[in-house]
Amino acid sequence: MTPPIDPWLLERLVCPATRTPLRQEGDRLVSDEGGLAYPIRGGVPVLLVEEAVEVTK
């Protein structure tokens, strides 16, 4: 299980595709606006559009 991202940092991170806020969901950061989830590997968010997976609603 991935530990929570520091709230201060999470407030500043945005989706690289949509420039909208992200929220942490387990071991990924989710962009509700973009419908994308970005992995967190070794405690480091990987905010590359190529690494994102689509989130189904």
Rank of each mutant, 00 (worst) to 15 (best):
M1C: 13
M1E: 15
M1V: 15
M1K: 14
M1R: 11
M1L: 14
T2W: 04
T2F: 04
T2P: 01
T2E: 07
P3H: 10
P4S: 11
P4L: 10
P4F: 11
I5D: 00
I5Y: 06
I5T: 04
P7A: 15
P7E: 14
W8G: 01
L9I: 11
L9K: 07
L9Q: 04
L9R: 05
L9M: 06
L9T: 10
L10T: 05
L10R: 09
L10Q: 05
L10G: 03
E11W: 03
E11D: 05
E11F: 00
R12D: 05
R12H: 13
L13S: 06
L13V: 10
L13H: 10
L13Q: 11
L13M: 11
V14K: 01
V14M: 07
V14H: 01
V14Q: 02
C15Q: 09
P16I: 14
P16F: 13
P16W: 14
A17K: 07
A17G: 02
A17D: 06
T18Y: 02
T18S: 06
R19F: 08
R19M: 04
T20K: 00
T20V: 07
T20D: 00
P21V: 12
L22P: 06
L22G: 06
L22Q: 06
R23G: 05
R23F: 08
R23M: 04
R23H: 08
R23E: 08
Q24F: 15
E25L: 15
G26A: 15
G26W: 13
G26M: 13
D27A: 14
D27Q: 03
D27S: 09
D27F: 05
D27C: 10
D27T: 09
R28M: 11
R28P: 00
L29G: 02
L29I: 12
L29P: 01
L29R: 03
V30P: 01
V30H: 04
S31W: 14
S31N: 15
S31R: 07
S31Q: 08
S31M: 15
S31D: 12
D32G: 11
D32C: 14
D32N: 08
E33W: 04
E33P: 01
G34L: 06
G34P: 00
G34T: 04
G35I: 13
G35R: 07
G35F: 09
L36P: 02
L36M: 02
L36F: 03
A37R: 05
Y38M: 04
Y38Q: 01
Y38F: 11
P39M: 08
P39Y: 10
I40T: 13
R41W: 08
R41A: 07
R41H: 00
G42F: 08
G43R: 12
V44E: 10
V44G: 09
P45M: 13
V46Y: 13
V46T: 13
L47I: 12
L47S: 03
L48H: 09
V49A: 02
V49M: 02
V49G: 01
V49N: 01
E50H: 11
E50T: 13
E50P: 05
E51L: 07
A52K: 00
A52N: 03
A52Q: 00
A52Y: 03
A52E: 02
A52W: 00
A52G: 01
A52F: 00
V53Q: 03
E54H: 09
E54Y: 08
E54G: 09
E54W: 13
E54I: 06
V55E: 05
V55A: 04
T56C: 10
T56E: 06
K57H: 12
K57E: 05
K57F: 14
K57I: 09
